[in-house]
Write a protein that binds this DNA or RNA. Structure first.
Length: 334
DNA sequence: AATCCGGGGAG
DNA sequence: CTCCCAGGATT
């Protein structure tokens, strides 16, 4: 049976939910794409990508038949690029075998774990499947004052989500909990005064909401220095596809490394134009950006016209490096 | 349960 | 700088 606080949250969600492009959809493909993009990624970051993706790959068949290069280009800038490859591999699986019938079958697709399977099954299939994401884990920790540290907290949150699930309205319920975590039960400065669950929330009662969930001491990321060379030939830039086991596997990257510029460039004017910082999982990278010209390059490199770089699958740092090089150029011209 | 996966953006 | 994001896979 549905309790009063559950009805209150559902009412709050109906009144306060953000209008997002994937809200209200029941097409499995569209729900799946949204969940894949949203993994470890903020809603704001996904917004510019979601509809563009659906225009380019409107159906699961279109995605299955697309060239991997186009798929990666459409994902470029979102990070965790394995998600895009998994999504296409999953699309090919669906075209071959048909749609998974429920959460359990969804788990069989690459890149689909307990969360994503529950999300797609509840939202697209109407199945009574719970979900736990970072938002719901936080709501749970505060609602029940559970100071268990992650990752154990996650398992306890799943038990709670299963028991709290409003049967028959799982799609709405799951999204309501996530929306509450994102908008009201925020990581910092939770808005307990606006929370529909405040009367029942134990952290609110005790006054420890902003200290939950317990944060786990994070190992300090390892710092690493890399050099990047933006080497052009006329109106083209030398790029290569990063190989297996390298950073940004499969994406187009400029020559880079810890030492000097790779052999094979007959470079001139290789000047430093400044530093960039980026983070790759547990590494903090400082990229020293250089620019120069060369008519030749190792065989793995291709000339990419400047006006086509934006259409290639490149890591986010490439456009930032190009901007830096332009600024450096302007300074030199002075 | 712990660790890695090899990103990125907001504040 | 720190935090953490609608996580998944591997060991």
């Amino acid at each position: 049976m549905t309790e009063a606080w559950q009805e209150r949250l559902l009412d709050w969600y109906r009144a306060e939910a953000r209008q997002l492009p994937w809200r209200g959809l029941t097409d499995p493909y569209r729900v799946w794409v949204s969940e894949a993009m949203l993994q470890q990624t903020t809603v704001a970051a996904v917004l510019p990508y979601y509809e563009r993706w659906l225009e380019r790959f409107p159906t699961v068949e279109a995605l299955a038949e697309a060239a991997e290069e186009d798929v990666m280009a459409a994902w470029a800038g979102l990070g965790y690029y394995r998600r895009a490859r998994n999504l296409q591999a999953g699309a090919r699986h669906v075209v071959r075998e048909g749609w998974p019938a429920g959460a359990q079958e969804w788990r069989g697709l690459p890149g689909v774990g307990r969360y994503t399977a529950g999300a797609v099954a509840s939202i697209a299939l109407g199945e009574d499947a719970p979900v736990v994401d970072g938002n719901i884990e936080r709501v749970y920790a505060r609602f029940t004052v559970d100071d268990t540290a992650p990752p154990r907290l996650n398992g306890r949150a799943w038990v709670w989500a299963e028991s709290a699930l409003v049967r028959g309205r799982a799609a709405e319920w799951n999204q309501a909990l996530m929306e509450l975590g994102a908008r009201v039960c925020r990581p910092r400065s939770p808005l307990c005064g606006e929370c529909p669950l405040a009367p029942e929330c134990r952290a609110r009662e005790v006054g420890t909401a902003d200290r939950l969930p317990t944060r786990k001491a994070r190992p300090t990321p390892r710092s690493l220095n890399l050099a990047v060379w933006l080497v052009n030939d006329q109106d083209t830039l030398w790029l290569r596809q990063a190989g297996e086991g390298e950073w940004w596997t499969g994406l187009w990257v400029p020559p880079m490394g810890e030492g000097s510029i790779p052999l094979g460039f007959a470079g001139t004017g290789l000047e430093s134009v400044g530093d960039l910082k980026t983070v790759v999982t547990k590494h903090r990278l400082t990229l020293r950006v250089h620019r120069g010209q060369s008519r030749t390059a190792p065989a793995s490199f291709h000339r990419v016209p400047y006006d086509q770089i934006a259409e290639r699958a490149t890591p986010a740092f490439v456009s930032r490096a190009l901007k830096l090089a332009e600024a450096g150029q302007r300074r030199i011209d002075l």
